[in-house]
Nucleic acid binder design. Structure first.
Lengths: 142, 142
DNA sequence: CGTGTTATGTTATTGCATAACGCGGCAATC
DNA sequence: GATTGCCGCGTTATGCAATAACATAACACG
């Protein structure tokens, strides 16, 4: 697990990425700032600049519906502009998934309207499996 | 089924809805506020409260990636929690579409992870047909 | 060195959204 | 008719999100 595939990150970028990578959920820019104040970060631009770079590198995703950020954990995140997220509103966990059929559907819809798709934001809100069935056999499906 | 026409809206709600409906694209809450200052609106909560109600009624959608709002123009907008938007970054026009296959894909993905989907945010960014292939360049574009 | 470039630090501001308080109309009840 | 409770409304103030603008440091390279 060396940083073989990781491009050279600056100190701030490393700090921000580590914070996101070690978090168990999405973090807002200001939360990151607070966490890294001891490390020397003191103002929003330092965080936002690092985030911008990390997003460019495909190492971090921005969650539009949360105004928050997560480290990319997609097994084979080949297309960072078409990531799909499932966001549990009970535990705040975020899962990133890639689905070929879904991507195809998106592309097909866009093409049907002669729309040149450059980026797809897909964020699914709901309740994750663990939070739906926490050792409880209740059939609360809706 | 499709409710005949507009449910009883309060004055502020009507003002906000009219502003959105007559706009040729999405508006931010503060833009709406500015436009309606002459009509008596003076503070953000008045706009946000109206927007909240209009969204509940399914008459308005919030565009998460723009922090903006549009009147619902979906021909048969039966499911306001699964609307799909195509957002042209050249002309700022927004098209709302409903696609059965896409919706099915979303539901299938969610189910595959035992994820109880409550709301899907799908916002496609790119360039619309008119902006990709400008048939006539007489419009004072940009 | 001097210069260009890149990363950084800092202050201030803009933009987006909501908390919190209080008022006034209005229907239901007494 | 007065009392009460709800609801929409108006207002102030605040908090969070993001960026503009400017100044500095660190470094590569001729």
């Amino acid at each position: 697990m060396t940083s073989s595939s990781v491009p050279p990150l600056t100190k701030n970028q490393s700090l921000v990425y580590t914070a996101l990578n070690e978090a168990d959920g999405p973090l807002t820019a200001y939360t990151i700032l607070d966490q890294l104040r001891d490390e020397g970060l003191r103002a929003p631009p330092q965080v936002y600049r690092s985030l911008e770079r990390l997003i460019d590198l495909g190492m971090v995703h921005r969650l539009e519906t949360l105004n928050a950020f997560v480290a990319c954990r997609h097994p084979s995140c080949e297309d960072h502009t078409h990531a799909v997220f499932m966001i549990c509103e009970a535990c705040d966990q975020v899962a990133e998934v890639g689905d070929k059929t879904l991507t195809n559907s998106l592309n097909r819809v866009a093409r049907g309207y002669d729309f040149a798709l450059s980026k797809a934001v897909v964020e699914l809100h709901g309740t994750c499996a663990q939070c739906v069935a926490p050792t409880d056999a209740r059939e609360g499906k809706e």
